[in-house]
Design a protein around this nucleic acid. Structure first.
Lengths: 229, 229
DNA sequence: TTCTCAATTTGAACACGTTCAAAAGGAGAA
DNA sequence: TTCTCCTTTTGAACGTGTTCAAATTGAGAA
């Protein structure tokens, strides 16, 4: 059999071992950094043989992805709450993305292990089909944030807006992961200013002067997201 | 002594060995792909011991960077010519970037080995201090393209424009590297539309309505590029 | 209870990037 | 020529991610 054996009910022995390995990995990553933590070490901490780690996870990187997946699942109610409690689009977007920051702050630098995969075909890339489930769940939040707001959107780009917002989010997070300024203040500024720019851009989208820009944007998005993908 | 021994005059024995290894690596990369080409294999093709490759190059990735560096150096006259022969900013930007596409087309996918380094501290990252020389040479072309054109620029963002254009270029190249559409037509569309959008944006920059946007952009850029960096 | 078989666990072996101590080469000094 | 010392070359060894054939376990069938 391959990895990820039949997904067992929570509480099964198998599931317990899997989380034990995941937990051991996270501890080791936090203590020694991702690179310097070895699979042998992780397995030892989890009290299993080296090979066992590979029975449960495809690779060392995949452990980080499992962590990412679990985290996003865990934070769903928080995000839900923020969506429900905020009225403006700005507050909603800020809420969704800030929730990510809060959730991942303790393991911020660990996410660097995921950003390494720029190849969309790599199973661990944020753009791969393997990560589509996670990605789509995330995009769905942006869809809701947009739909439940009453901002008027340029019709050509509107269908792509949630995906664009997701990309925007990924960009901000990438910046954050490598932000060495104290308490990541640079990211705070980046996030704040770009979010305001984004909303301002949407607000003035109806101005006739900007028509040609929208036409180009629409054509671009259709070509890039269309057909083959 | 460490790597990169005293840089010898062209034609020295050492230099010859270095290029032989580089050439062997490129051949092997092209034949078997970057991942599957082993250092032992490359060394064998170059008729040296495995360790020799590491005497001349810091790492397997660094060979690709050496190729990138040599290529950009080689294409300088081409870029110069294009800058000289084109009058509009659009033509100039298109010329600079298209020259890159042409130069790297035969080894397009090889560049993927470089895009993996998202960490600005990694020596091979496009953002690292180690690659500053290459990066600055590239940015200088954009500076010239901008300065020698008579487009009026928003004063707040003007100082950052060459660096922004460089980032834009890197983004387009990244897209191109992984573009699987036939003959990379998607990238062509992306490049064409985004370039037009960019110039349109610059053109209408003076409109009073867009003032707040420029103020935000200026503040953002000052914070991100300022002080610490 | 005993048997069966899939799920799980094991740890040695493998592949490959990288390091390193030692050997070889070679250019000038004496 | 012989010596000196730096550059270059060598290939074995190392560390680590990953694979895999074999052993173990355990739940249900008989």
């Amino acid at each position: 059999m391959k990895n990820q054996p039949t997904v067992r009910a929570t509480g099964s022995k198998s599931e317990e071992t899997r989380t034990r390995i995941l937990e051991a990995a996270l501890t080791t990553f936090r203590e020694r950094g991702f690179e310097r933590a070895t699979m042998r070490e992780i397995a030892a901490v989890a009290n299993v043989a080296t090979g066992a780690a590979y029975y449960y996870f495809e690779s060392k990187d995949a452990i980080v992805m499992a962590f990412y997946e679990r985290s996003t699942k865990d934070m769903t109610p928080v995000t839900e709450a923020r969506l429900a409690s905020s009225r403006t689009l700005e507050a909603r977007l800020r809420g969704i993305i800030a929730a990510k920051f809060e959730e991942f702050r303790p393991n911020r630098t660990l996410l660097a292990a995921l950003t390494a995969h720029t190849d969309p075909d790599h199973p661990l890339s944020p753009f791969s089909k393997e990560t589509a489930r996670i990605r789509n769940a995330d995009i769905a939040f942006f869809t809701r944030a947009v739909n439940e707001s009453k901002v008027k959107l340029p019709t050509r780009v509107a269908p792509y807006l949630p995906r664009l917002l997701w990309m925007y989010q990924m960009g901000v997070i990438l910046f954050w992961v490598y932000d060495k300024s104290p308490d990541q203040q640079r990211t705070k500024v980046l996030f704040d200013k770009t979010l305001k720019m984004l909303l301002l851009t949407l607000k003035i989208a109806g101005v006739p002067l900007l028509r040609p820009l929208h036409r180009l944007a629409g054509e671009l998005l259709e070509a890039v997201y269309g057909e083959l993908r």
